[in-house]
Write a protein that binds this DNA or RNA. Structure first.
Lengths: 109, 109
DNA sequence: CAACTACATTACCTTACAGCAATCTATATT
DNA sequence: AATATAGATTGCTGTAAGGTAATGTAGTTG
């Protein structure tokens, strides 16, 4: 688990970041941003979430460094801050696959 | 993001799994299990969480395939189901490091 | 300056869940 | 069988957080 000491404080920080990903709406937003920069309004249209809702999710994701902001006139463009989000989702998807395979084996076995 | 389609249902499943890690108490339990099999009572002592609390967390972690169970007489031994939990934490720790470095740069710059 | 647009913020409601105490179940011991 | 222990389950309470409507704010346009 890296070279970092897992003190209670660090566990809180890590948990806080996992919690940011523990929400379908935020995962949906992040997934939209995969295709590139998007404004809040575009995200609202694409996700069919409410504007205030999207805005709040974006504030959270930004405060934790998951997305970056670029303001241009009236518009605010958001982008993925880095690709580690998808490393995380990849590992989770791997877990999902393993789970489903195991479940199928139980049913078939 | 792998080869899996990120339909809303899949996003819910992924979010559900991230949520399991979005809790310091559960991260603490998982971290304890790094050193090997442990009984519920041992985990209670090590984490200084309540017994009912630990038991509930273990049910959740087990239902999502994070831990495995082995019953022996009165005792139930829990172990990590696989190592992917630590891949996830490693990536998160990497994010934390990057965040803190960026913060320091801002202060210093 | 007035009206409009894009986004952020606030206030409120509702739901989910961590923590705890009490109880229940299963196993072991005498 | 009676008692004790390990763990699971249930009911309760307080708190955190998602969704939404209303409002606020910065920037733009006429």
């Amino acid at each position: 688990m890296g070279n970092r000491a897992l003190t209670p404080d660090v566990l809180v920080l890590i948990a806080e970041r996992f919690k940011a990903l523990a929400e379908p709406a935020r995962l949906q937003i992040l997934n939209c941003l995969r295709s590139g920069e998007m404004t809040v309004t575009e995200l609202v249209e694409e996700t069919s979430l409410g504007q205030a809702n999207v805005s709040k999710h974006l504030q959270l994701l930004h405060s934790l460094g998951f997305v970056a902001r670029r303001k241009n006139g009236l518009f605010v463009h958001y982008t993925l801050a880095d690709k580690s989000v998808f490393q995380l989702c990849d590992v989770m998807c791997g877990r999902l696959d393993a789970e489903m395979k195991a479940r199928r084996k139980l049913l078939a076995g």
